[in-house]
Amino acid sequence: MNPVLFRKFKNHLMTFLMVAATAAVLVPLGMIFFHIVKMGISSVNLGFFTEIPKPPGEAGGGMANGLAGSFVMILMASLIGIPIGIFGAIYLTEYGGSKMSTTVRFAADVLSGTPSIITGLVAYSLLVVPMKGFSALAGSVALALIIVPIVLRTTEEQLKMVPGSLREASLALGVPFWRTSLKVTLRSAMSGVTTGVLLAIARVAGETAPLLFTALGNQFWNKDVTKPMAALPLQIFNFAISPYDDWHRLAWAGALVLVTIMFTLSLTARYFGRGRQRV
């Protein structure tokens, strides 16, 4: 075969394979999203965001308590997990050669690969059993355990991309080492850090298994974080396995809202990530 023709054949073949691989990813994703929109759009209304679920057999209702509960637990988990992840990443970057940093990095990698249901069991043993009850606090700790390794590893990679000359210039001006790490190194990588934080929040926003062992869920409003609290993924799960058609419709609506939230967070993360690349 002519070498030129053979190269063109290989080029077209590889292009076809890449397009086919892309379609293999996008087509199922599009079908899933289309089905969720088709099944849930009719039940997404004002009542969905302002009302709590109705008793079985009654039409209407919403998942306002689940949305509020998810917001509370994700906020608490972020307040716990994000600072730990960021400061841990700073330690790994500035003291990367020590044995402790190797241990911390390995532990973060293991934790990031741990199934979320195991994380829920750990939080159950640490908080639910001693407190003798399920609670939003336990659910927040379980979600924080998922946030920490994601934020830590993404932040570490972003801090490594900061030129060493910036640190040296700051230290040469007499700025303390800790202040240089926070005000110069971390600030220079802030867009990338924000991307990692948003991806971590998007990850835990859809978690159900850890909350089954910790927050448990609640059909009513609850402001006490030491008591069981509703969460959107929990309500979707419970309503989807129920025998009531009205609850099935709410489950589809909840799935649509949850997917929309996660999609928005992912797009926002990509926006900050692109900003970092331009720099």
Rank of each mutant, 00 (worst) to 15 (best):
K10P: 08
A23R: 10
A24Q: 07
V25Q: 09
V27G: 01
P28L: 13
F33Y: 04
I36S: 02
I36D: 07
K38Y: 08
V44F: 12
F48H: 04
F48E: 00
T50S: 13
P56R: 10
E58F: 09
L67V: 05
S70K: 06
S70H: 06
F71G: 06
I74G: 14
M76N: 08
M76R: 07
M76W: 06
S78L: 09
L79R: 00
G81V: 03
I84C: 03
Y91D: 05
G96T: 00
G97N: 14
T103W: 14
R105I: 03
T119Q: 09
G120S: 10
L121Y: 02
A123G: 07
Y124G: 03
S125E: 08
P130W: 15
K132M: 14
A136G: 15
A138E: 02
A142H: 00
L143S: 01
A144R: 14
L145A: 07
I146V: 14
V148Y: 01
L159Y: 01
L171A: 04
R179T: 07
S188N: 08
G192F: 03
G196L: 12
A205H: 13
F213I: 07
W221K: 13
K227Y: 10
I236R: 04
N238T: 00
D246A: 12
W247M: 13
R249A: 15
A253P: 13
A253D: 02
A253S: 02
G254Q: 01
G254C: 05
A255R: 00
T264A: 09
S266P: 01
R270S: 04
R278F: 15
